[in-house]
Design a protein around this nucleic acid. Structure first.
Lengths: 214, 214, 214, 214
DNA sequence: TATGAATGAGGCTTCATTCAT
DNA sequence: GATGAATGAAGCCTCATTCAT
């Protein structure tokens, strides 16, 4: 399809790139796990999609579960780094900063394939408790910490009326979860203007935070 | 084969009842699917939990997938009926009605095993597109319709400033999804006072709806 | 080969004999394990030889090792019972009794397929310590006890000069092990008149026991 | 590829020596085969123990079975040489010579790791008929020849009453096989004073040979 | 010559489905 | 109808062997 020449010549047999191999397997595994779930995805399918033999996977990962774990660790951790990097020395008002955070999440997660990872965690976590734990450590706890920091900044600068957001940092990602579910499951039944929805939600949330309701 | 008439139906437990059998199997299937997911749950386990033989399941359902489908159809539809029944002729102010709706959902879904059904849908929908469709028809579209009806009631009565809630009925369930994720995945890492969280959110939401923010 | 009609009609599909099934599998397993060793024998081969499907084996045995263990327990224990039963109230002189014991072993073990079981134990014991343990409990310790009882009988009756045989009961089976190795490994290279060999050894042994050599 | 001349052969350990390589591989193979058997031993394990890469083994041996065969041929033949060398011009009485032979075997085989080779032969001979053949040619037939030579020496010198030992040379190694089995399998369940046992056996055997019993 | 990444056939085991009783 | 023993396809994983470097 692409007129550009194949960058990787892909010699038959032993490939030359010992590093790209691992990434190719991870990419294939992500796709298969997302499409079929952990139990239903087969190593045969992953290998085929990665363009390697079944046994090759075991050169890089001890077993199917280790592959799954590596996948989560490799692809999830960088996500939160994006948001943390966006914070450090933000000059403007805190409400603007909050909007910035939420929009970053929408742009970098909800509107990319990364959104599927959350589904994977939701799906498989009950049977693989370490999965929720990794996700907690790498994403959720760091994300909530981020929001709490912003909440205190807002309170310190007199922009927020009280500690509502610090107590319930989950208020910020709430619409994002709606967006996640929507784009994942229900988009084909009814459209949702995701960005408008999030903006509207932020309007209400910030309005509520600035003037503490009863 | 046996010429002796079956004078004693030998109903041990819930056996012998051709209708109760089906329900017993469905109940067992629900539990196994929720606990292990579709692929990992075994008919052996379902049969054991239902107190029937493996082969018996095939007298009621064509195959594993048919069992799954019947389960979803039998158990999901009633959920939304609860909320719809709560609406009909509510006398008081619309904000109170909204709070009532949200609390019903928290009490009847989030704090019961029914919450697991949502997880099952999220998990298996990609492989069983009809699953999302059923869920949409039976739950989501009716739920959103309910909220829209309430939104219009509020606007008609002059309680809401504009059509924000009618355009984005997802605003109401947003915190409930957070609650879903929290109780499902992260409860063991950090506590969340679910009821306080939801009440606080309703404060903010209703405040925002009553006086339309910029 | 046998002109008699097939006693088991062997209907295709589900067999009727729930008891013979297990024995058929054990017999097939014995043959394959003996011919190929534990690691090299395949369940595919065992199933084929038993005339059952691969999965059927797992209805009777938890895994390959459990099959192996059951095989040893089922086939080894009866062997020693033969010798123990031969002892109780033997009327004649102890030397005659000893010869009787040795001949029973030759006839019932060395000259039958049972001899192969010893080879199996020797082969696989280092990797499956429980195997040597079972064999010790079921065969060796009981066999040595038998010989010690005979030795004391001989001493009590004044037929043996001292406690040599009680101290070294292994003296009796020594030539039988030679016979085992010979028939197992070297028969095709050079003939050995096993019975004459054993008789000649017994002559020497009994001669030595009757008049204790220096 | 590297233009620099290999001034330093970089012989780490026993590498670099094309002949030592072969020996290192054989030594490692011996250890792994003895510990795990032919089928269960892996080339990966042999290579690691030999300190070479898996592929290197194939530079010296065509395949796993060829490695096994070479191992047996290289390591078994020398064993019998020990005993043959002990014979040539023994000055003393033949019974003393026989005791000397037996003790040499106990010391050099039973009490060393070489004893395991016999177990390997017993284990794998049914699947590799050439294995029993090699063992026969290199060890057993030569060993029996040795004993027969001693038997004739004894008869010629009037020390033995008849040709019993020449007809049944297996009489001499019989207790050694008992010792083999004992140290290999049953030592941990009951102690056996191996040297005392062998001496006592020789007492009886020689006593019987000197004065031919009925 | 030496390496070790890559391969893929084949082994053990599981489990949805069938069917004789 | 109900049962559960039997089946066999399919999955995960191992490892002897090959081959580009």
């Amino acid at each position: 399809m692409d007129s550009a020449p194949p960058t990787a010549p892909r010699r038959r047999g032993r490939k030359g790139d010992p590093a790209g191999r691992r990434q190719a397997i991870l990419a294939a595994a992500l796709e298969r796990f997302l499409a079929e779930g952990f139990a239903a995805a087969t190593l045969e399918g992953i290998a085929r999609q990665a363009g390697v033999a079944k046994g090759t996977i075991y050169l890089y990962f001890a077993d199917k579960q280790a592959l799954f774990r590596a996948l989560v660790q490799d692809r999830i951790s960088p996500v939160i780094g994006l948001a943390e990097a966006a914070l450090p020395a933000f000059p403007g008002p805190t409400p603007v900063l909050l909007r910035h955070l939420a929009r970053t999440f929408v742009r970098e997660v909800l509107l990319t394939e990364r959104r599927q990872l959350l589904r994977l965690v939701v799906s498989e976590a009950p049977r693989f408790p370490w999965l929720a734990e990794i996700y907690w450590q790498e994403v959720v706890s760091r994300g909530l910490g981020l929001i709490r920091a912003v909440a205190q900044r807002g309170q310190a600068r007199g922009e927020f009326a009280d500690d509502t957001l610090a107590r319930f940092p989950q208020l910020l990602p709430a619409p994002l979860l709606v967006g996640f579910l929507w784009t994942t499951l229900f988009e084909r039944f009814e459209a949702l203007d995701l960005e408008a929805f999030v903006e509207r939600y932020l309007d209400i949330l910030l309005h509520g935070l600035e003037r503490a309701p009863a």
